[in-house]
Design a protein around this nucleic acid. Structure first.
Lengths: 154, 154
DNA sequence: AATATGATATCAGGGCTCTGATAATGCGCA
DNA sequence: TGCGCATTATCAGAGCCCTGATATCATATT
């Protein structure tokens, strides 16, 4: 503490803030730090982490609706709607009404969106190797299974 | 997809959304799902995940300043400031000026804040065991080390 | 055919998180 | 003494994420 020299906080990596802290707390911090890294990497492309995820999904599932994307990302339709709105404003995606279902708006990448996504993927996926640094394949498998189980609601 | 039967998305846990997806993506989803669980658990106490974290730190480091708490949580002072503002509004913490340093505001739990925190901790730490379900101690150590390394900026 | 149900989209509002900018305080050094 | 630097707090603005409520459209039920 800067203001109370009698209660010195441990540095990250020490005490309960380190590997013996609460697992939920560690998970939160790790995801937070990783998200900050991704956003720093993408900031000059004018993309946020959430926008990048949406573009990746849109590339994999073209002509998806907002509700489709929300389901894929485990987000609410309202949240996805604001992300899409920002991508629309930036001209990275476009919408057109569904040919049959009058209410549905299909969303697609624009050429500019594809270009931006391509540049972003090269950078972000470069972080992936850093995430694996120092891990054996067995360890990687353990971690992957644990994370996937959590994400699937286990 | 509900609107395009020709492009069926995998369920969570299948395909690239499962354990063979991108590690950064898995990390994000896992932390997201866990945060939702914590907030569902705490909603009737009127606490968010961020507020709970702040209260835990305040209990461990009494009379910390907003800047201190921000450092502990790896958040910006501005972010911590809004969290504190909401805790103040709810009467769970109180502030008083530092005895020597005129600018610093020291923050402390109120009795109501302590009571609320105590109830919340019992619930949240109960989730911890679920996070460990099916893991050997070796596996747990691997996961802990990986998360802590990431959070520490490795 | 009329109604009920479910899916989609959107409005409103609140909390979390960031960046950028501003102001006040305390400390070190010329 | 006085100036500059670091720290603290705060204002402003933007994006993400949630809950709750509403309106539109499609389909299934009666």
């Amino acid at each position: 503490m800067r203001n109370s020299p009698d209660a010195v906080p441990p540095a990250p990596g020490e005490g309960r803030r380190g590997a013996d802290g609460h697992l939920g707390y560690l998970l939160r911090q790790a995801a937070h730090v990783h998200r900050l890294r991704v956003e720093a990497l993408l900031s000059d492309l004018g993309l946020t982490s959430a926008q990048f995820s949406a573009l990746v999904m849109l590339e994999a599932y073209p002509a998806a609706s907002g509700a489709d994307l929300a389901r894929l990302a485990l987000l609410t339709p309202q949240t996805m709607s604001t992300i899409i709105a920002n991508l629309l404003k930036a001209g990275l995606v476009a919408r057109r009404p569904h040919a049959v279902h009058g209410r549905i708006q299909q969303i697609a990448l624009t050429p500019e969106g594809e270009a931006r996504l391509s540049a972003a993927k090269a950078r972000v996926y470069g972080l992936e190797s850093g995430l694996l640094a120092g891990l054996s394949t067995d360890e990687e498998t353990i971690i992957r299974r644990w994370l996937a189980g959590l994400a699937a609601g286990a």
